[in-house]
């Protein structure tokens, strides 16, 4: 395992532009644990949108542009199961036979999803400073199946003693985001997120937490459209708020 006193933070394009507070909270959580967090200036996107749409050459070009962002043998922490899954599971496939395959394998091997890093590597201990709150957790499909880290978010939230976790029906079912799926199959995606939001609402949770901003954009956007007051939060932002008593 690479040294952990320093990490690279790979923000993901979605967080950089749409959910920077989630990314910042993730970086602050790491820093509070004594980790020096480096934000590589030239990072952009892992290449997943094109990869999942069949445009592999375009995905490869974008993924390739990231390799130079992580030269040293320190972990790359990603606050997203799907971008982490892209880097860890699909980069080896995407770069297979390419001249920089080894560099891609190297980065893939030291890529961590944020909750995975907090639990497995840092063994973080959390103290809950917030008011009593009922939440539901939506684990992204990539965190669950590609990264195999579904239980990390659960164990982090379980450390917060004033937070009650409610479980929605069909918890492991996809929310219907799927990247370009939500555009190409907009109506199917809409039906899926309707089922997901119905199940979440039925728990009477006050807030829905996830480790992926793609799912949160889908679920939170649907709540908003449905005129529902249900809040959504990325796990990093949620943990930071609960343990600092304030927004980042």
């Amino acid at each position: 395992m690479p040294a952990t006193s320093q990490v690279y933070f790979f923000a993901t394009c979605l967080i950089d532009l749409l959910y920077p507070q989630a990314g910042l909270a993730g970086m602050q959580l790491l820093r509070r644990e004594g980790v020096e967090v480096i934000f590589p200036a030239n990072q952009t996107c892992c290449g997943q949108p094109a990869f999942n749409s069949g445009y592999r050459d375009e995905a490869l070009a974008v993924a390739r542009a990231q390799l130079a962002c992580f030269p040293r043998d320190i972990p790359v922490v990603v606050p997203s199961g799907s971008c982490g899954g892209m880097m860890r599971q699909h980069w080896p496939e995407l770069f297979a036979g390419q001249p920089d395959e080894q560099a891609a394998l190297d980065v893939a091997a030291r890529t961590y999803e944020l909750t995975e890093f907090l639990v497995d590597v840092l063994q973080i201990r959390l103290r809950d400073l917030g008011e009593p709150l009922a939440v539901a957790i939506h684990t992204s499909c990539s965190a669950r199946r590609e990264m195999g880290v579904a239980d990390r978010i659960e164990s982090l939230v379980a450390q917060l003693d004033k937070v009650e976790v409610l479980t929605q029906a069909r918890k492991a079912e996809c929310c219907g985001f799927g990247g370009t799926f939500a555009v190409k199959q907009a109506d199917v995606s809409g039906a899926m997120v309707r089922d997901k939001t119905d199940a979440l609402r039925a728990t009477a949770a006050q807030c829905v937490i996830s480790q992926d901003c793609g799912c949160l954009m889908n679920i939170g956007g649907a709540f908003e459209k449905q005129g529902d007051g249900l809040q959504t939060r990325h796990i990093a932002e949620f943990l930071w708020e609960r343990t600092e008593g304030a927004a980042p």
């Binding site: 950089d16 749409l18 555009v183 995606s189 997120v193 954009m217 956007g221």
Partner: peptide
């Protein structure tokens, strides 16, 4: 199709960078 079922996402005032 996105906004048939959801509100539109909107860039934050400042990027994470």
């Amino acid at each position: 199709g996105w906004t048939r079922y959801r509100s539109a996402p909107r860039p934050a005032p400042r990027s994470l960078r």
